[in-house]
């Protein structure tokens, strides 16, 4: 049901039956390692390219999710997935392997929440019994595609972010036990003219602000309705900008309940990740893994997950275009 201008309420409350995550060795050194199901100690995963490694991680997360829920892949009606690679090859090649009817999406780093909201809409509206959704990113394949060769010695500024190597998947169902997706807010493109791909936090923060404000306006609720509001991969700079901007715009939001996945996934003191983590897997691992686990343990009752994405390409950057950004939000309640 449409609520307000850009939000939707899922009346049947699709249930997240199970979720699983996978990650590389660098993420395993971070504070969220306990919430990662499959940890790989080789960034190649024994493959001969980073792209194949990323596909394998997404595959692993998807299969592990179905295994956790005890659902056979032939019963899953739809697989929705996105990643950062050109022509979303990681998602499509995973779909080739698992053989579930597939919708590929591209929302850059917002793919995790975009997929979750589309999946919830299919479960709620079309009564598809099981829908699988996933997202993945790989530090090395993203660097290779968007920036420079991995071993190239370019000095990164303090505003840069570290793309997370990993993947996450969620299985939604019409019934069962678990956290429920109650609503979603689909973001609009916000472009504040920032064109520096080493400053994603500042580029994406206005999109997060726009979607968070739209969510509370449409749903007619106050920020303290949620136990936690978490953004996808703004990093420490984007987090600060978002918080300050929300307060400046008159929203009463407490620093205690507003977190960012990019600041949680790595230990910023021990690991050199500049402003924090980024990439589809950043929000996928933190939201699908860490936060859903905490909801299942009863530590959090209501969560608003807002994943942000920078929708530029290496080509648009070279042609001096600024970075169009987007943020999608889903409300998950226990």
């Amino acid at each position: 049901m449409v609520k307000g201008h850009q939000s939707f309420i899922f009346e049947s409350k699709p249930v997240i039956l199970a979720s699983a995550t996978s990650a590389g060795p660098f993420e395993a050194q971070g504070p969220l390692a306990e919430d990662i199901d499959l940890i790989h100690d080789d960034i190649y995963l024994g493959q001969d390219s980073f792209e194949k490694a990323e596909k394998l991680m997404l595959e692993g997360a998807a299969v592990k999710t179905m295994e956790k829920a005890g659902i056979n892949k032939y019963d899953v009606g739809l697989f929705i997935s996105g990643d950062l690679m050109n022509q979303i090859i990681s998602s499509s090649f995973t779909a080739r392997t698992i053989g579930i009817p597939y919708l590929g999406i591209f929302g850059a780093c917002s793919s995790s929440v975009e997929g979750l909201s589309i999946a919830a809409a299919y479960v709620d509206g079309q009564k598809v019994k099981y829908v699988l959704t996933g997202a993945s990113s790989h530090n090395s394949s993203a660097e290779k595609q968007f920036r420079y060769p991995n071993e190239y010695g370019a000095q990164k500024p303090p505003t840069a972010q570290w793309t997370v190597t990993g993947a996450g998947a969620c299985l939604l169902s019409t019934q069962g036990n678990g956290p429920k997706v109650t609503g979603a807010t689909i973001g609009r493109i916000v472009d504040m003219g920032i064109s520096d791909p080493f400053n994603m936090g500042a580029a994406m923060a206005p999109a997060a602000v726009d979607t968070i404000e739209a969510h509370f306006r449409d749903m007619e609720i106050e920020p303290d309705y949620y136990d936690i509001i978490v953004t996808g991969d703004l990093g420490s700079i984007g987090h600060k900008i978002t918080l300050d901007k929300l307060i400046e715009n008159g929203m009463r939001i407490s620093e205690k309940i507003y977190k960012d996945c990019g600041m949680m996934i790595y230990d910023s003191e021990k690991q050199q990740v500049f402003a924090g983590g980024s990439g589809c897997a950043c929000s996928a691992i933190t939201v699908y893994g860490h936060f859903l686990n905490r909801m299942r343990r009863g530590e959090i009752k209501k969560m608003l997950a807002v994943a942000t994405g920078a929708l530029h390409s290496p080509l648009s950057y070279q042609q001096k275009e600024s970075i169009p950004c987007i943020a999608h939000a889903v409300a998950i309640e226990m």
């Binding site: 303090p158 505003t159 504040m192 003219g193 920032i194 400053n199 500042a202 923060a205 206005p206 700079i237 600060k240 900008i241 300050d244 901007k245």
Partner: peptide, 9 residues
């Protein structure tokens, strides 16, 4: 916005 953001970078 850019001068707002710049103060926080």
């Amino acid at each position: 916005y850019q001068s707002f953001a710049q103060k926080r970078e």
